[in-house]
């Protein structure tokens, strides 16, 4: 799953660093992801994993690291 998240960040995150160098806990905002880029990342994640983020998940920490994104996807796909 983490590689699919990494690919989305590479395509949509507008990062100032190589997405290949991101660790699970690397702060994506510090890696250059703007608020607008995080929206595109969110929409791409919804398409890739066939999920819909509820409003309550629209918090910066939910999209702040690859690990946090993975935890959110796991939560949304639980029981599938």
């Amino acid at each position: 799953m983490i590689e699919r998240i990494r690919a989305i960040l590479r395509d949509h995150g507008r990062l100032s660093v190589d997405a290949g160098l991101l660790g699970d806990d690397t702060n994506l905002y510090e890696a250059g992801m703007s608020s607008h880029a995080s929206v595109n990342v969110m929409l791409a994640l919804e398409g890739e994993f066939d999920v819909e983020f509820p409003d309550a998940m629209f918090r910066r920490e939910v999209f702040g690291t690859m690990g946090a994104i993975r935890a959110a996807i796991v939560e949304l796909t639980k029981g599938r």
């Binding site: 608020s35 607008h36 995080s38 929206v39 595109n40 969110m42 929409l43 409003d55 629209f58 918090r59 910066r60």
Partner: peptide, 14 residues
């Protein structure tokens, strides 16, 4: 839109 909800939440949070 929906992306806007995320931007608004982020703006408020910060």
């Amino acid at each position: 839109g929906r992306g806007g909800k995320m931007l608004a939440a982020s703006q408020r949070e910060q």
